[in-house]
Write a protein that binds this DNA or RNA. Structure first.
Lengths: 357, 357
DNA sequence: CTGTATTATGCACACGAGTGCAAGACGGGC
DNA sequence: GCCCGTCTTGCACTCGTGTGCATAATACAG
């Protein structure tokens, strides 16, 4: 249908020179006389020449392309993080291939193979739960790989990574609750992200231990490990919170904000006021956190920054520069879902669609 | 650093044949004897051969690649829609280039140029507000273009498109409020999406007209047209709602769910109960809608489906098949933010961090 | 045993751009 | 007039894959 785009051969013919001269002229080579160079560049602009990046990739043995693997494009984390990656990549003249693999191992392998066929110059995987076969595949690719907020345990392979400081974040969250007078604090965990879940639980336990408080039976609630989708997080948080409430807690620290939303729903279901009767702290600080009722007190992860750092690390690796892994600090964001421990304990009531704000 | 990946030449050398034979054998050409073919395919597997898609693109004059333009990767709409696109693209063997252009015209043009250099076979733009220069650029590209939920007015250029039925959705929303007994209904509009805003406002007016109800002064509130970012939507909804509440409305139909969240915040600020005193209906049915308090009654857009349809339409265009634009129906989702009109009018009170659920 | 049909393989070129090397054009010094 | 140096350009090859056409190898009919 559409006519073939103009190539340097077309320009060469129009200018009465060889394509080699055109190539050099367009790259501002000093080998070409100023007169001819100007003439060719003018012609190129007039004819609407756009260099063929495919040919350049083939010749240059480098595609100027990276692959971004996300397990779920619906992950609320993804947006800002991908933007950070994209920003830095664009600035370096790299284009981004998007690869989604909704926690399906076969799809994940397919994405990696596709990147390999495309000869991407590097790969970033974002907040994923890569399985061992995928990691094996990645390590054999021969291109640099950076893991950003990898949720799964990375065994065997020494990949470079950018991670948020999960343990420190968890300590911040629990210390906040301790300062508000709470001592019966639950942890609602997500074992389907083994690594980050373990780190956050460790931070939780460390903070309590430092305050000389024992973790009582039933305070640590873990969801079923095989849960995978994002929608499940809310449901998991909800049921874990229902279980935790039976153990007499006055506060809960949740694996992430979606869990915290589930915990809010559980409280609403039981007619428990948040933060009046029970306090809740989340993790991640996704957009949603500020819009739920009450707005969530949570741990802020600098998602844009994580993406930028990941891409900068990848660039270092691609250029053969020395590269160091990053542990990125996180911050406590105090909103409204946690307050001083109540004097009395919890009562119940129920009802769908409460009067609301 | 990394050794060059194995090519068909390497396999040819190992098998003692020419690269042409290898090429044909790997593509299961009947020209090659079964014996040689099997031998070559075994060798290819052993040597870990991965075809070079760059070379194939150059030779085949087709990159098997499409470009996906999104104005903001943080747009809550984006996730599901992109997944729909990705699903269909993957199934057709196409890889997706991601292009973000946060409503910046220069960045938008840069993205398009980048796609042009990469010789993508088609382009999808998702829920964007493309400006005329970009549209000009797109139309000169010589590749099929599909607009999905284009927010801006498309002048001059007859692009193919997939759109949700904005007018019908607006009518559904307003009819729902009418059935609940409301007659003083506001429309909170977003003129920075001229096309969809106009269609939703028209639907709003049509529903009221059909019920024989006049639109009173101040019932239609429009934000400043230059607002661009996603975070602004909440603030805009909030201030528009404050203005609308002064006109004695009992319900508001909002341009989208983020506006509706802003409207909720406005009510909370004034101590107005939703839906007890004022009803609110949104548009889009983003994830957030079900988690705010009260959960939003809204118009559901089938985002995944929109993405799939957009990609299918693009495939039709790419293959030269007959292609027809799509107007996709939407549905009313009744949750909790709209109820029967109250007997008495509104009172006020205020306070940050209300007790919540 | 020769001529022809059939099958299997290789040669050579193409895709679009980049580049080492050779060579032509030109000027200047002797 | 000759030689050498400088500047400018073209030739020819490369990157990895695909394919039309020629050709070699084999089979088969007469």
């Amino acid at each position: 249908m559409a006519a073939r785009p103009v190539s340097i051969h077309d320009i060469a013919r129009a200018a009465g020179v060889s394509h080699a001269t055109v190539s050099r002229a367009l790259r501002d080579s000093p080998l070409i006389s100023a007169e001819v160079r100007g003439n060719i560049q003018r012609l190129a602009a007039e004819m609407g020449y756009t260099p063929n990046a495919v040919a350049q990739s083939l010749k240059g043995q480098r595609s100027n392309t990276i692959g971004l693997v996300v397990t779920s494009i619906a992950d609320p984390f993804y947006g800002r993080l991908a933007r950070g990656v994209d920003e830095v990549a664009k600035r370096a003249g790299l284009d981004v291939f998007l690869g989604v693999s909704y926690n399906d191992e076969a799809a994940e392998l397919a994405v990696i193979r596709s990147f390999q066929r495309r000869r991407v110059d590097g790969i970033i995987t974002a907040s994923s739960r890569l399985t061992d076969p995928s990691l094996d595949q990645l390590s054999q690719l021969g291109v640099p790989v950076v893991l950003v907020n990898q949720h799964a345990d990375v065994t065997r392979h020494p990949f470079h990574s950018v991670q948020a400081d999960n343990a420190a974040g968890a300590r911040l969250a629990v210390q906040h609750l301790l300062e508000l007078g709470h001592s019966a604090i639950a942890y609602l965990g997500a074992p389907n992200r083994p690594r980050s879940n373990r780190q956050r639980e460790q931070g939780y336990r460390a903070a309590l231990a430092a305050a000389g408080i024992a973790v009582q039976d039933g305070f640590v609630q873990q969801a079923a490990p095989e849960r995978r989708s994002y929608a499940d997080d809310v449901a998991d948080g909800q049921s874990l919170m229902l279980a935790a409430l039976r153990t007499g807690i006055t506060a809960a620290f949740c694996f992430n904000d979606m869990y915290a939303v589930g915990a809010l729903l559980a409280c609403r279901e039981l007619g428990i006021r948040v933060p009046g009767q029970v306090s809740i702290v989340g993790f991640d600080d996704i957009e949603l956190a500020q819009y739920v009722t009450p707005p969530l007190t949570t741990i802020h992860q600098p998602k844009l920054r994580l993406g930028q750092l990941g891409m900068e690390l990848l660039l270092d690796l691609m250029e053969g520069r020395p590269a160091t892994d990053q542990l990125v600090p996180v911050e406590l964001v105090v909103r409204c879902s946690a307050s001083r421990v109540p004097a009395v304990t919890v009562q119940l009531a129920a009802g769908p669609c409460p009067a609301g704000s």
